[in-house]
Simulated scan of single mutants.
Amino acid sequence: MDGQRRILVLGVGNILYTDEGVGVRCVERLERDYEFTPNVTLLDGGTLGMRLMDALLNADTAIVVDAVLGGQTPGSIYRCTGDDLRKSLAFKDSMHQTDLVDTLIYCDLLGNRPECVVLGIEPHDYQTMAVELSPLLSERLDDLAAFALKEIEAAGGGFKPRQRLHAEA
């Protein structure tokens, strides 16, 4: 890819628990609404944990989108890097966050840990079993996607809005 940075946008979370799946829903929105340059890969990481290792080893930059309990009001958006990363990813009893931190540590041991940023949003409801986001986070999804687009651009990726048919409105 002619020296371009390989950017992985990873949506994680369990879509069966309302706002817990916001990272996956954000990646779905990005895939639906934008076309990306070849150096950008979007991936629904769900709750895959260690099975994400190959994708992470092949990335220079990883942008992880997830629900994060940061203590602010629901809908607040966070950007976490460095030491804040472990705190942001280890926030609850869900398996995928801890697995992701461990996976990044293993990538480090193998000598190719991508630069990583977590874009998190404070969930409103992450305990009710439902596949839809809460109304509050549904309203904030475009804002979260905009934050992800800024990170993609800052990392050296490009995008353009998809051409939409008028009948899709």
Rank of each mutant, 00 (worst) to 15 (best):
D142S: 14
P123I: 05
L56G: 04
D33S: 12
D142M: 11
K92G: 15
I63W: 03
Y34S: 07
R162K: 13
R86W: 04
G21N: 03
R32N: 11
G23Q: 05
N58K: 12
G49I: 05
I15P: 13
Q127W: 08
T103P: 10
D93S: 15
H124D: 15
G49N: 10
I63G: 07
E28P: 10
I121S: 04
L43C: 08
N14R: 03
Q4W: 06
Q127I: 15
D66Q: 02
E122V: 04
M53H: 05
H124M: 13
V68E: 03
E132S: 11
A55P: 07
D84R: 06
Q163H: 12
G45Y: 01
L42K: 06
P74N: 03
L16R: 08
M53A: 09
N14W: 02
M95N: 12
L52F: 01
A146V: 11
P74C: 04
P114H: 00
S88M: 03
T47Q: 01
V27D: 09
D60K: 07
D108Q: 13
L42F: 04
L57T: 06
D143M: 12
V68L: 02
P38A: 00
L100N: 07
V64H: 01
I105C: 05
L69M: 08
V22Q: 06
S134C: 09
R140P: 10
G49Y: 01
E31F: 04
L8V: 05
A59V: 11
V68I: 09
T18N: 11
K150S: 15
G120Q: 06
P123H: 03
T103G: 02
T41N: 06
Y78W: 08
G46A: 02
Y17E: 08
L8W: 01
T18P: 10
G157Y: 00
L109P: 05
T18C: 14
L89D: 09
D44R: 10
L57D: 05
R51D: 14
L165E: 15
I7M: 00
K87Y: 10
D102K: 10
M53C: 04
Y126S: 11
A169V: 14
T61Q: 09
I15W: 05
I7H: 00
I15R: 11
Y17W: 11
L119I: 13
A90W: 12
T18V: 12
L119G: 05
T73P: 12
L136C: 05
P135K: 00
Y106I: 15
Q127K: 14
E20W: 05
E20N: 08
D2H: 12
G82H: 04
M95L: 13
T61R: 11
L8Q: 07
